[in-house]
Design a protein around this nucleic acid. Structure first.
Lengths: 248, 248
DNA sequence: CGGTAAATTGACTGCTCTCAATTTACGTGG
DNA sequence: CCACGTAAATTGAGAGCAGTCAATTTACCG
């Protein structure tokens, strides 16, 4: 139970990096366990595994049972709901510090979304039972979990307000601004999403998303830095969204 | 501190019904305190007040500080976000058993929405400090709060998927189905929302909402029972949403 | 019964979708 | 390193849906 043995769930789109060493985690201040004393990690019954996923890699699938939640150390994850018609609607984009799969804390409830990496992702898989054990001895963890859920609520509300309201152009602009918040590289540039993902985020067709992106590029609001990497004119995009009567 | 004195926040759209008597609450099984022993309510430092609000009455306003969360005993409440442009977007509709204002549990955070009654509402105002006190002695309350937040997350996700996706007609149909779930009267009939509210829920203009409702009435999917009260053809509306290629 | 607000309806514009053709990007194997 | 094949992105043309603005009708409160 203690050796560095690859877990059974190992597969091609998920690369195991080892057991997580929470007490030496470089970004623990951002994470779920930020307030826990180091000694608490010494005698966990189940291991916390650390994974890397390539874009397209699946963390978990809607409707399936499971026993781990994922804490995102790096990268960008999309949460999707599938509609009766079969198509997928993206309901959230999450980056560093977010925890996904917390719905499992209600006993018997399966994952509510399909969670997929849209950029290379580094996650820790925390067993629900471990969470419950730690919670029993550290009531402050309960607050951290509550804050995580509140974060999801706030994100969802902001999503409804900014990404699902108004004309197509403004919604795409808001999406670009969101990407700048969630997943900027060291220069503040962003990786654009595939057009179908953009469409599934804001609720339009990929063609319309493509037209708007092309238009933004022609107008210099968006400049290609490298394949997939773009620099955005943040302030001009913000003005674009707020003033709908602008002369832009 | 113990007598039946009207609280200072008394105002015209909010009618005080008295101190809540949680241990004899008729619908406690649905509420936040369902698992707490009756004795715990005996020595609360601050009172839990019981209010009734008429449609249009405000529970709290976005950005303002506060010290109580509201547990909905009866009626329908809308949560609104105001956009920079000034208009309001409705991000949630909540009925019996839901608790709103839980964002206050993060110290220093103001209310994130404006909460307004859309139908006559009966609520209990629970001081945040009371919640914290009870939580300290009853860890299971922490689970109830977590479940409440999870409920809000699930609702928000469902909102994005059903009310903010697809053509206008389907979204209005989904809204009618949601109202049937949240606030059916004893006959299963519903109170329609004002057209501006419908528009603010699904993200369209009041005119378009009106046209669709009028069309539903002409096609017999919706029948007026009394002023404001309508009977809906639930199954036909469901078919309408699911099969977009239907011959309806 | 009158006044105001809400809802309905019409005409027209314009945005977004649909379907299809074309171009570009990218991974694979020679 | 280049050529190729596939997938993604872009672009075009046309139709239909939803928005806008305005007029009219209906509902509701006092």
């Amino acid at each position: 139970m203690t050796g560095q043995t690859k877990p059974a769930s190992y597969c091609t789109d998920r690369k195991w990096k080892g057991r997580a060493d929470c007490s030496h985690c470089g970004i623990r201040r951002l994470m779920l366990f930020s307030e826990l004393p180091e000694v608490s990690f010494a005698h966990l019954l189940k291991p916390i595994d650390n994974f890397v996923l390539v874009p397209g890699g699946i963390l978990y699938e809607e409707g399936k049972g499971g026993e781990v939640v994922y804490s995102i150390r790096r990268g960008l994850v999309k949460l999707m709901h599938s509609k009766p018609s079969g198509e997928q609607r993206i309901v959230r984009l999450l980056g560093q510090g977010a925890v996904v799969g917390l719905e499992l804390l209600d006993a018997g409830v399966p994952y509510q979304h399909t969670a997929m990496a849209v950029q290379p992702v580094d996650v820790c898989a925390i067993p629900v039972s471990t969470l419950r054990d730690l919670e029993a001895h550290h009531p402050e963890l309960c607050d951290r979990i509550r804050q995580q859920l509140q974060y999801h609520v706030d994100r969802a509300d902001h999503w409804i307000k900014t990404l699902n309201t108004g004309v197509a152009r403004d919604r795409i602009a808001q999406l670009l601004l969101l990407l700048t918040e969630l997943a900027p590289d060291r220069n503040g540039d962003i990786q654009l999403l595939p057009r179908d993902d953009m469409a599934a985020v804001v609720g339009m067709t990929p063609e319309t998303a493509s037209r708007i992106i092309a238009d933004f590029r022609r107008r210099g609001l968006l400049a290609k830095i490298a394949p997939g990497t773009y620099r955005i004119e943040k302030q001009r995009l913000q003005r674009l969204c707020e003033a709908n009567a602008g002369t832009e």
